[in-house]
Nucleic acid binder design. Sequence first.
DNA 1: TATATAATTAGATATATATCTAAACATCTA
DNA 2: TAGATGTTTAGATATATATCTAATTATATA
Lengths: 89, 89
Amino acid sequence: MSLSQTFAALSDQNRQKILDLLKKRDLSVGDIGKKLSITMATLSHHLDVLKRADLVSGRREGQQIIYSLNLSVMEEITEQIVKFLKHKK
Amino acid sequence: MSLSQTFAALSDQNRQKILDLLKKRDLSVGDIGKKLSITMATLSHHLDVLKRADLVSGRREGQQIIYSLNLSVMEEITEQIVKFLKHKK
DNA sequence: TATATAATTAGATATATATCTAAACATCTA
DNA sequence: TAGATGTTTAGATATATATCTAATTATATA
């Protein structure tokens, strides 16, 4: 996954909200859905984008899928972004 | 300009290349064009996106427009991104 | 002032993506 | 095992965007 693709994954308002929610605690898809004004199908799509960008992971717990931030990956991406953006002329 | 919109501006490979080139030195549109495999029209579009995201600025020098990175804005955005990404649960 | 050079704008097109409804799949429980 | 609950997948649609060619605008110079 390229840095551009990571930026693309981060460039949607709803995905930002999802990441913000997951910063506080792990949440089921249903719980995330309650906080957003989109259908479950659309939410599923966004979670898929975030998963493919390796920004979140889901684990099944009974009927629910619990999503969490991939903190180590977030850290790594932060490093890359800082390296890219902060590098002076 | 929201953080999502900034991410969107950063999410294209050609725009990444433009920023990379401008990290080294200020360049005219023509000089940037020589490094990319796109038409000048497309390049103009990408420069417009980067300008609207406040990531670069252009100044006219005779017949040429010289583009440069907006370093202070880049710094500010870096801060925001780090704040967003590094904030733990 | 006519021509050349540099860059942008206009208009068209093709691809990507955000969204929805409806259907399917997975799991739990009575 | 049938029905309820939670999530994803399929298929459709509308909007956004990356790209191109051709035309236009801005500047310099012969």
